[in-house]
C-alpha cells in the first residue's frame, strides 16, 4: 500500500500557451513599431509612443485571453511595471556600463594604493593612483558620520519620543535642511570657518560640510524607523518601572537597530559622492594626508571632478577608475550593513 507522493507546485505550472502569450505580447508591439519606424511611416518619437501604447494594449489583451475580463487590469499593470523596470534598468545599466567600461582601463592594484604626488595629467596609466583620495574619502565620511549620527538620532528621539514643545519647529527645520543644495553647505563652512580665519583648508572642514548634508537624511530616516517601534513596547517598558530615558536607550533604540543602521547608510550614501561641499573646504592634495586637521586632503569625488575636466586621456581614464572605485566602495558599505543587521547569531 505504498503510495508515491511527489511534491509539486501546481500554482507555478505554466502551459505552452502561457509562454506563447508572454512572448507574443512582449515582441509584437516592438515588431510593429520597428516596422513603422523603418518604413518611414512614423517619426522615431511617434514610433516610441506607438510602442508604449501598443504594449499597454497588448498587456490588456493578453490578460483578457488569459483570465477574461478580470485579467485586463492585471495585464495592463504588468505591462506598465515592465516598462518602469526597463526604463530604470536601461538608465542604471548604461551608467554602470560606462563607468565599468571606461573605468576598468586604469584600475590596477597599484592604482588603489599609490598617490598622485609625482604624477602629471599626462603620465601614462600604470603610474600613480588614488590611494590618497580613497583614504581621504574614508576619513572625511567617517568624521561626518561621527558628527551627524548622534545629532541625527537625538533629533529623531526628540521628535518621536520626547515630543517636546518645539517638535514642529524641529521637524520643519530638518525638512528645510534636506533641501539645502550641497554647494551651499560647502560655502557655509567656507564662509564661517575658512574666510574668517578660524581654520585653514583641511579634511575636517570637508567633514563638517558633509555632516550638514548628512544630518537631515539621518534624522528623517531615524524618525521614520523610531515611529515603526510599536507603542506596545514603550507601554510595556514603562509599566515595568522604566524611566523615559531607559525606555529609549534599552527598548526603542535596540528594537530599531537595523533601521538606524539603514539611516546611517542612507546618510553616507547621500554624501559620499558629493563634490561641491569639498571644493571650498578640503582644497585637495596630491599626496597622502591622513591628518584631517592640517593641510589639504584629497577625496574621490574631488579627484574625479578634477580628472574628467582634463583634456588628457590618461587622467580621464584615472578619473573613471576612481568613479568605479567609489561605486564599489558604496557597494561594500551597503553589503557590510546588510551583513551586520541580519540576525546571524540568534537562530
Amino acid at each position: 500500500m505504498n503510495r508515491t507522493v511527489t511534491a509539486s507546485k501546481p500554482w507555478k505550472q505554466r502551459t505552452s500557451n502561457d509562454y506563447l502569450l508572454v512572448i507574443a505580447t512582449s515582441t509584437l508591439p516592438m515588431l510593429v513599431s520597428y516596422v513603422a519606424l523603418k518604413s518611414g511611416i512614423l517619426s522615431p518619437m511617434l514610433a516610441g509612443l506607438l510602442f508604449i501604447v501598443s504594449q499597454i494594449v497588448a498587456g490588456g489583451v493578453a490578460g483578457l485571453i488569459h483570465r477574461g475580463k478580470r485579467g485586463v487590469g492585471d495585464g495592463i499593470l504588468v505591462s506598465l511595471i515592465g516598462f518602469s523596470l526597463a526604463t530604470i534598468g536601461i538608465i542604471m545599466g548604461s551608467v554602470l556600463w560606462s563607468v565599468l567600461y571606461k573605468g576598468l582601463e586604469a584600475l590596477k592594484f597599484q592604482f588603489l594604493i599609490q598617490n598622485n604626488e609625482y604624477i602629471t595629467p599626462t603620465s601614462p596609466l600604470g603610474y600613480g593612483g588614488i590611494g590618497h583620495a580613497l583614504l581621504g574619502t574614508i576619513i572625511i565620511v567617517s568624521i561626518a558620520t561621527l558628527i551627524s549620527l548622534p545629532i541625527g538620532i537625538a533629533t529623531a528621539v526628540y521628535i518621536t519620543e520626547v515630543r517636546g514643545r518645539s517638535k514642529v519647529i524641529v521637524q520643519s527645520l530638518v525638512q528645510a535642511m534636506s533641501g539645502v543644495p550641497s554647494v551651499v553647505a560647502g560655502l557655509f563652512i567656507y564662509a564661517t570657518f575658512i574666510i574668517s580665519g578660524v581654520s585653514a583648508y583641511n579634511g575636517f572642514m570637508g567633514a563638517l560640510a558633509y555632516s550638514i548634508l548628512m544630518l537631515p537624511t539621518v534624522a528623517r530616516t531615524a524618525e521614520e524607523v523610531l515611529r515603526l517601534v510599536p507603542d506596545d513596547l514603550r507601554s510595556a517598558a514603562l509599566a515595568l518601572g522604566a524611566s523615559r530615558a531607559r525606555v529609549v536607550s534599552m527598548v526603542v533604540l535596540p528594537t530599531a537597530k537595523a533601521g538606524l543602521v539603514t539611516a546611517t547608510l542612507l546618510g553616507i550614501a547621500r554624501v559620499i559622492g558629493e563634490t561641491a561641499p569639498l571644493v571650498f573646504t578640503i582644497f585637495g592634495s596630491a599626496r597622502t594626508n591622513l591628518n584631517p586637521f592640517s593641510d589639504g586632503m584629497a577625496a574621490l569625488p574631488l579627484y574625479i571632478f578634477n580628472g574628467v575636466r582634463q583634456p588628457f586621456a590618461p587622467e580621464q581614464a584615472r578619473a573613471y577608475s576612481a568613479a568605479l572605485v567609489l561605486l564599489i566602495l558604496v557597494l561594500i558599505v551597503f553589503s557590510l550593513a546588510r551583513f551586520l543587521t541580519s540576525d546571524r547569531k540568534r537562530k
Binding site: 510599536p230 506596545d232 517598558a237 515595568l240 528594537t255
Partner: peptide
C-alpha cells in the same frame, strides 16, 4: 508585547535592567 530585540532570558530580566 515581549521586547523583540531581546532573548527570552533578557526579557525576563528586562524589568530589573530597565529600572536599574
Amino acid at each position: 508585547n515581549p521586547f523583540p530585540a531581546m532573548t527570552i532570558e533578557e526579557n525576563v530580566l528586562s524589568g530589573l535592567r530597565l529600572a536599574k
